[in-house]
Write a protein that binds this DNA or RNA. Structure first.
Lengths: 199, 199, 199, 199
DNA sequence: AATGAATGAGATTTCATTCAT
DNA sequence: TATGAATGAAATCTCATTCAT
């Protein structure tokens, strides 16, 4: 009856979360069932509820993890010399599994946030962090004269963030889109947006 | 003796579609149930199936109507003198009910298109039309020297379209966003993106 | 508001019944819907209920008609010189549409009679008539020395009737059955059954 | 830790199948509902689908079980000294519950096989087995000089099988039939059919 | 006579969740 | 910790029948 190894517990939680991530990526938050997740994680439903109180809790945890990964990723990117190029490059080639999952599910999260306050909370919290990272980057760029000082850093950051969201729609709207060209053009768009304007 | 008014039939179909649109806007395509729609339309479930063969058919019709409205709207906007300003203005204040529904549901449609081929088809078809409208606008602007001739019209059109999609995320990511400022900034972004570059 | 032409009424009833017969033959009593029948008869459901009080009434009428046709058919056959050959020949090649419908639906009627008292009543009534026809035939044959006098005419008639029912199962149990050979063999079976036994 | 007794699973499946058998016997394959079966088996609908994927799967399993019982029964009967007498005796007094269910439902299966390919497949497969058993019996009888060598064993077997089917109609056509006399007469019919003909 | 709109009960199936072991 | 049995509400869809015109 004694509690066992909280480390193991945490590891199992991660495993389940990974399995859930794969299911959600495949079928979406609503489309994936507890059954799917149990099958993918190779555990029984009863057991799953030992680790998560509800499906919503899993969804929340996945969102948390995915968005947190986004934040870390953005932080790494913002630290690079040519941040804009790195940003676009990342949209082009997501590096690891968790980040990819986050990518695929982002639109799902946005939609879910529109109806589910819990998801809205998580999304907004992480959005604040992302926006702050971008805004700081912009502020520094302005200080160095590399970014248009006329832009409100917070507002511009919010816009850039959402432009990124919009790019998930590219392949959905046109599955034959030439992603390479589009991302080159996106890079141009961002550059021109941020570059200081000549008098 | 005579068949009764197919006009009435069509009118009822519209009523149901409007009711469904309200439900979908409130709860999403998956979240809204046939029961919800019937209650909203004040008809019985059996009757609903007199007008639509399945829930999917309703979803499809709603998407069709909403996206078609988008296409018409964009066509009207592209005809205006300052198209970019008109575009941004429209994002700001959707005019009528149907357009508003289309707005709210757009992200839902994108997500749905990711898993449901029927929705994907509808979305892609209308996206082609939208992209063509924008690309034509860009081509004309290039001919007049108002738009950077270095941009590939189709690619740029696709990007602009998706930037528009991304803007739906603004309020979701930050419900306290100052929409006025953001749209002003969006306008700047689009202007700078399209304006011919000085040597 | 005055009642019109009862002849027309009767004609329409027949039309509907024919349509229903085709539907029932295709899909069975339970499988065919009022909708199917209306489509086949090219009338509206409201109108159909002008002629029949319920689906059960249609089923009953169809059964009545089909079984009555059976009775008439058997009466004609029993009047022929070589009645047994004629009987088997008829199983082989049903002559007209109504008789064919009766054939196809007979198992359906038997099953339905097992649960639905109305159908049971109709079936039993007509079975009595059929049995009487066959029993009379047997009695006459016995009188002429052509049929084994040791057989109880009523019992033997009942058996022959049910042997006929069983033959509907031939193609169901084995769709590749050689019907010609089987019916030849059936003829042998009936002949031997009825033929007077040598001492 | 260890998977729980697949024996229990199988036992529950049987219970449900028995309940379903009773419902089907009472109301037919189409008439019996999942609700009926759940009530009879005292389980919830959700639980039933833990054991069977669909109503059709239950119907199939019932048919399989019932027909398989028929096959075994016929095999036992064919092994007896006076097989024909044993055959008729069995029609008279079905021994256990499962066999009785099979009896009642046989006509239902035939009808269902007429429209449902899955049922048709099951029926045909078992019919082949039954026909083979009977044909072998006939061949042996012919070898021993007890059965008319002029009969094609397969064809005759098919006929005998269907004569058996027809006997289910006896009580349906005439509920007051004297089953004893009828079965005596059936025995005569079969004997005369099979007995070698004197020159 | 005739239409087709409209109903509402009920059928099958799904699924998040809880229970017993 | 772990299983899988079990629940029950709810979702989509069907269909015989009735209503209004």
């Amino acid at each position: 009856m004694r509690t066992v190894d909280p480390v193991k517990h945490e590891a199992k939680r991660r495993e389940i979360l990974d399995a859930a991530g794969r299911c959600f990526a495949r079928k979406g938050f609503q489309g994936a069932t507890i059954s799917n997740i149990c099958a993918e994680a190779k555990i029984s439903p009863g057991h799953l509820y030992h680790y998560f109180a509800s499906k919503e809790a899993i969804v929340g945890a996945i969102a948390e993890v995915g968005l947190e990964a986004n934040v870390e990723l953005l932080a790494r990117i913002m630290a690079k010399p040519d941040a804009i190029a790195a940003l676009v490059a990342e949209v082009r080639h997501p590096k690891d599994q968790r980040e990819k999952t986050g990518q695929v599910l982002l639109l799902d999260m946005l939609v879910e946030a529109g109806r589910n306050p819990a998801m809205a909370g998580i999304l907004q919290e992480h959005s604040r962090k992302l926006q702050t990272l971008l805004a700081d980057f912009i502020r520094k760029g302005q200080a160095r004269g590399q970014i248009d000082p006329g832009l409100d850093p917070e507002v511009a950051a919010g816009i850039v963030l959402c432009v990124g969201d919009g790019m998930r729609a590219l392949a959905l709207r046109n599955p034959e889109v030439d992603m390479g060209k589009s991302l080159d053009t996106l890079k141009i768009l961002l550059s021109r947006f941020l570059t200081p304007q000549k008098p």
